[in-house]
Amino acid sequence: MTESSRGAAGDDAPGVARRLACFIYEGVLLFGVVFISGYLYSTLTQQRHAMQGQHGLQAFLFIVLGIYFVWFWSHGGQTVAMKAWHIRVVDNQQRPLGQWRALARYVLSWLWFLPALLSVWLLGLHGLGAIFGSLFAGVLAYAALAWLHPQRQFLHDAICGTRLITQRPVKR
């Protein structure tokens, strides 16, 4: 293990592949959160058509996901997927995140998707294959940026002053 990939307190930084695996697992878990939240929104607003109130639904889901991530990151530094992959988010001094830093990390973590979504919108793409292909390429390009950072951190972590570390379970 090189010194550049180790945390300040000696905690190992998880590899990019392990962080991407956690990212995929997080997406699977969030499917349930989004499904239940969307059902709640459509029930409360009596939405009868998928295109009716879609911007309100998107804003609602953005807030729900923000609450999910900010709460988990500021209360223990791990979401459910991060616990499964033994990854924890801390600040650069290895301290737990406060709610404001967790909120900033959540907002900036949308950098994973915004360039691809912007390109889809600017190019006027409508096919599912083109949209998912653009998102997939955008996520891979964003992940590849981590190899340019000395500690292999993602861009939003570098901007927010946060880092991911390996958090192994305590042996009894």
Score class of each variant (00 low, 15 high):
92 N>R: 14
145 L>Q: 01
80 V>H: 01
26 E>D: 04
55 H>C: 11
88 R>Q: 12
116 A>R: 05
57 L>C: 00
82 M>C: 05
75 H>R: 12
83 K>I: 13
2 T>C: 06
64 V>H: 01
127 G>I: 03
41 Y>N: 04
25 Y>Q: 02
1 M>A: 12
163 R>A: 11
69 F>L: 11
22 C>G: 13
74 S>Y: 06
156 H>F: 07
132 F>N: 06
158 A>S: 13
11 D>E: 15
119 S>E: 09
27 G>L: 08
52 Q>K: 10
103 L>A: 15
131 I>D: 01
2 T>A: 09
28 V>T: 14
137 A>M: 05
96 P>D: 11
121 W>G: 12
142 Y>R: 10
2 T>S: 14
50 A>E: 15
117 L>I: 03
110 W>K: 08
12 D>Y: 07
165 I>A: 01
27 G>S: 07
138 G>W: 02
85 W>A: 00
121 W>V: 10
16 V>E: 04
62 F>G: 05
87 I>E: 05
77 G>I: 02
28 V>K: 14
98 G>A: 08
96 P>V: 07
20 L>M: 11
139 V>H: 01
23 F>L: 13
30 L>N: 14
158 A>D: 05
138 G>S: 09
166 T>K: 15
34 V>H: 12
166 T>G: 01
33 V>P: 02
79 T>S: 12
23 F>H: 07
56 G>K: 04
17 A>V: 14
57 L>D: 05
157 D>T: 01
17 A>G: 12
105 R>D: 02
26 E>Y: 01
161 G>R: 10
